[in-house]
């Protein structure tokens, strides 16, 4: 098990955004998290990546308890993410944006950098080479010297994924990577994600495009009101009555007859 959460709860005052979720992700899989708006998907992401500290519960990642670690420390352990709204570094070039993502894999002390020692030169060169390699993968090579601010929305999303990939993570969390994209762009992103998974990465995906979720996921977890209401393969989820009820609402009459 690469990631395991044990009864995590995240309360904001009286609001139970996440209420006791057990959730685990196997290596080399695409694991989707779906649920209606406000069901706690993004909160779950924020808790897992250390952005929020859970009210209670425990999170293990790659054999380590990361519940109380800060985001940067969790990133160092090999977990990175993208955001629901674009969070690029607008006044840096596309290539620099990517290289920032490599931060925790570069070992340069302040003194060595300041004196520009050969080891620093070597590492910088390697980091930029790695950055270009990733730019090739995400298909933004021709934009590498442009400012990130000049990218289109879809390109920005790709850049965020690239920036998260460049540190060679074990687990990548994608928060609605295809939001606002046309079908062609969506396909491009989903294929990219699939390829990453083939190369040994595990992916947690929050996504509203059900077609994409069902086509690409190995496993799907469904949240509603901060609780896990179902988990299984896409086929199992599609036929799960609880899930259908959560998404479409229970039919009153039906409900009445049942009770």
């Amino acid at each position: 098990m690469l990631l395991q959460t044990d009864q995590i709860k995240m309360y904001f005052g009286g609001i139970k955004a996440i209420d006791g979720v057990n959730f685990s992700v196997q290596p080399h899989t695409i694991h989707s998290v779906i649920g209606p708006n406000g069901s706690g998907k993004t909160t779950l992401f924020n808790v897992i990546t250390g952005f929020y500290r859970p009210t209670s519960g425990r999170i293990d990642f790659d054999g380590i308890d990361i519940t109380n670690l800060k985001p940067h420390a969790i990133a160092e352990k090999g977990m990175t993410r993208t955001f629901q709204t674009l969070r690029l570094f607008p006044n840096m070039t596309v290539l620099e944006n990517i290289v920032v993502g490599r931060h925790c894999r570069i070992e340069e002390s302040l003194w060595k950098s300041g004196l520009r020692l050969p080891t620093v030169k070597k590492q910088e060169k390697a980091a930029f080479a790695k950055g270009e390699e990733v730019l090739g993968t995400i298909g933004l090579m021709d934009k590498k010297y442009q400012l990130a601010a000049s990218l289109s929305y879809g390109e920005g999303r790709l850049l965020e994924i690239g920036r998260a990939l460049v540190s060679d993570p074990k687990l990548l969390l994608l928060d609605e990577p295809t939001a606002g994209m046309n079908p062609a762009e969506t396909k491009r992103v989903m294929e990219l994600i699939k390829n990453c998974c083939h190369k040994g990465l595990a992916i947690i995906l929050v996504e509203h495009d059900m077609k994409a979720v069902m086509a690409y996921s190995d496993r799907v977890t469904v949240l509603n009101h901060g609780q896990k209401i179902a988990e299984g393969t896409p086929e199992e989820i599609q036929t799960n009555e609880g899930v259908i009820a959560a998404y479409l609402g229970k039919r009153r009459g039906h409900h009445h007859v049942d009770s």
Binding site: A75, R87, P90, N91, M92, H103, E108, S113, E124
Partner: peptide, 27 residues
Amino acid sequence: NVINSKTGRAFIAMREQRIAASMMGID
């Protein structure tokens, strides 16, 4: 030299987008 290194990029990244910077492993 410092600005053209990991440290300089970390400075700029945290100026530009603090949350993303921390998620990229920048303390």
